[in-house]
Nucleic acid binder design. Sequence first.
DNA 1: ATGCCTCAGCTCCTGAGA
Length: 255
Amino acid sequence: MKLATWNVNSLSVRLPQVLDWLAANPVDVLALQELKLTDDKFPADAFAAAGYQAQWFGQKTYNGVALLSPTPMTDVVKNIPGFDDDMSRVIAATAGDMRVIGAYFPNGQEPGSDKFEYKMEWLSALRRWVKEELVRHPRLVLMGDYNITFDDDDVWDPEGLRDTIHCTEEERYHLRALIALGLHDSLRLFPQPPKSYSWWDYRDAGFRRNRGLRIDHILVSTALKPLVTGCAIDKLPRKNERPSDHAPVVVEIAV
DNA sequence: ATGCCTCAGCTCCTGAGA
C-alpha cells in the first residue's frame, strides 16, 4: 500500500494539482488538509471521475480534512471523540485492514497565546484517543500536518527559530509522547537528503533558498514498522505554478 | 519591520497561516 499526506492550502485552488499528482502517483490513501471549503463544495465528483472515493470533513474558510482512496473506507470518525472542537481537523477511516487517521494539527500561532493553549489541549486529547485506537487497530497510520518539528534537523535555522512556534519544547514533548505510544516516524526510517523539509514560507523565496520546516509527518504503528519499505517527501508539486506551501509526504507499506 | 506571500471573505482590506 502507498499512502500520502498533503496540506493543499485550499482545495478549490489546488484541485487540478491534486488530480495531476494522483494521476502521476496512484495511492491507496491520500490524506488532505486545509481544504478551506464547506462540505457542499467538496469536489467529490472530480475525484470519483479520477477513480477515488472520498470521505471529507469541511469547514468554511479554515481547516477541513479529507481522505481519498480507490476502495471503500469504513468506520469514519470526524474529529477527536470526546473533545469538543468547532474546527474540522481530523478524519479517520479503515482502508483494507489498516486504520488511517488524517489530521491537521493546530498551528498555535505563538507560545503563550490562547491558540497555543488550544494546541496543547488538542494534542493531549489526540494522544488519549490514538492510544485507544492503537488497541483497537494495531495497524495504524497517523499522518498529516503536525505543525511541529521533531528536532533541529527539521528546521532550516535551528538557532534563529529556537523556541518559536513549531519548535518549542512543549510542542516537541507532545510529539515524542505520540511516539511513545508505539508510533514511528516513517521518514527517518530511511536515509534522506540533508535539509529535507515539507513546508516552505511563501515569502522571501523560502522554497528556492530551502528555508523550510519538516512539519508534515507519517507515523506508523509498531505492527506496521517492519513492513514499511520507503518514505519520501515529494518536492515536485512545490515547483508548480501557484503551489501549496506544503509538499506531499509518501510512504510505502508492504501489506 | 507583527512585514516579506497566499487564501477566503463580512473582498479593494483584514485575519490567519507557519
